[in-house]
Amino acid sequence: ARLLHGSIFAKVIEGLRELVNEATWECSGNGITLQAMDSSHVALVSLVMRSEGFESYRCDRNMSLGISLVSMSKVLKTMGKDDSLTIRVNDDSDSIIIAMESQNQDKFADYELRLMDLDSEHLGIPDTDYSCAIKMPSSEFSRICRDMSIMGDSVLICTTKEGVKFSAKGDLGQGSIRLVQTTNIEKEEEAVIIEMKEAVALTFAVRYLSMFCKAAPLSPQVGLSLSEDTPLMCEFKIAEMGHVRFYLAPKIED
């Protein structure tokens, strides 16, 4: 699998590695997918990178590759920002080859990472017709998670036709941030758009939302999909190639 802009792959890994330290990559002719839960089974990430999004892609037989994302992240940090990246696994090999190439082709780096034998547990995610779908700048969402974490461990997300409100309370007191739906969309990247069938009010752990925000550099906009008594879906699109979707179980009143 070759990417002209290897930095896209580095951003994917940075987006996942805090939530899941290691994961099984499923490779097929259609592309690369990954599904993994965090160790406490509260959050799940689902990654899709379609074959047509790569400069070149070939997969002769389906493979499951157990990879340490922490190690891969360390290797990818050595990559120059404009380098291209090729990932290769040879038949019957127990390692993955990560090759980087500088833009003017005067530097070539090759790394081999040992594959891991991982127990992977797969969950079926039902197609959900969410009550609310919010789109907002991903930088704004990162900022909100950071700001709300000052006040408490949990954030309550409430939606109305006018906008969306994030609030948190704790020992210090309480705080809230309300975003109003953009009425006059000039730049789509900066817009706040709320599609609502029913109002929702759901509570989530800020710590996990903040971990999801590590994937924010992938996309200028984030999608948040919400329904009562349903895990939140937080989506970052990967250009024309696919997406990273995070799911987070809500907090519930005892």
């Binding site: 406490s40 799940l44 179980a249 907090k251």
Partner: peptide
């Protein structure tokens, strides 16, 4: 009290 639920009740185990 507010409790953190896990994902299992929401998704099917494959």
């Amino acid at each position: 009290t507010v409790l953190q639920s896990d994902l299992y009740p929401y998704f099917d185990k494959l």
